Simulated assay, not measured.
Amino acid sequence: MPLKNDAPIQISAFSWLPPFAHGVARDIRVRWALEEAGLDYRTRLVDPRQPKTEDYLAEHPFGQVPSYRDSEGTMFESGAIVLHIAQNCPALLPEESQARKRATIWVFAALNTLEPAIFPLVDLEIFHANASWAAERRPAFRERALSRLAVLERTLGNKHWLEGQFTVADLMMVHVLRFLRPTNVIGEFPRLVAYQARGEARPAFQRALADHLAALSAAAS
Score class of each variant (00 low, 15 high):
69 R>E: 02
195 Y>S: 01
61 P>D: 12
95 E>C: 09
205 F>W: 11
90 P>W: 08
79 G>K: 10
62 F>P: 00
184 N>F: 02
213 L>C: 03
94 P>S: 12
170 D>E: 09
171 L>F: 10
160 H>M: 08
91 A>P: 06
217 S>V: 08
26 R>K: 08
59 E>C: 13
8 P>H: 03
125 E>A: 12
58 A>N: 11
70 D>A: 02
67 S>N: 05
217 S>N: 13
193 V>F: 02
96 E>F: 11
187 G>N: 12
179 F>H: 15
48 P>W: 05
192 L>I: 03
35 E>F: 04
117 A>E: 04
121 L>K: 06
219 A>G: 04
91 A>L: 15
24 V>G: 00
69 R>T: 13
140 A>K: 12
207 R>N: 14
72 E>Q: 10
47 D>G: 13
9 I>L: 06
195 Y>C: 02
18 P>Q: 09
208 A>M: 07
103 A>M: 07
54 E>G: 11
125 E>I: 10
51 P>K: 04
43 T>R: 12
212 H>Q: 11
61 P>R: 10
97 S>H: 13
52 K>M: 09
201 A>N: 11
214 A>V: 03
100 R>M: 10
62 F>N: 13
58 A>T: 13
128 H>W: 14
15 S>A: 14
48 P>S: 08
104 T>A: 10
172 M>S: 12
15 S>H: 04
153 E>R: 06
5 N>E: 15
108 F>C: 02
100 R>Y: 10
67 S>T: 12
176 V>T: 15
220 A>R: 15
35 E>C: 08
86 A>C: 12
71 S>L: 07
112 N>E: 13
141 F>P: 04
83 L>Q: 14
101 K>V: 14
191 R>Y: 01
25 A>R: 08
6 D>N: 15
133 W>N: 04
186 I>R: 02
57 L>I: 08
211 D>N: 15
20 F>G: 01
164 G>V: 13
94 P>D: 14
78 S>E: 13
54 E>M: 10
172 M>F: 10
132 S>L: 14
96 E>L: 13
156 L>D: 04
63 G>N: 10
53 T>E: 15
118 I>F: 04
116 P>T: 07
46 V>D: 00
93 L>I: 14
142 R>H: 11
124 L>A: 12
60 H>Q: 15
73 G>C: 08
205 F>Y: 15
153 E>Y: 07
210 A>F: 06
140 A>F: 05
80 A>T: 13
212 H>L: 01
39 L>I: 14
180 L>I: 04
105 I>L: 11
118 I>Y: 02
5 N>P: 04
84 H>K: 13
10 Q>A: 14
101 K>M: 11
74 T>V: 14
136 E>Y: 06
11 I>G: 00
173 M>D: 03
140 A>G: 05
151 V>F: 13
136 E>M: 11
142 R>D: 03
122 V>K: 11
184 N>M: 04
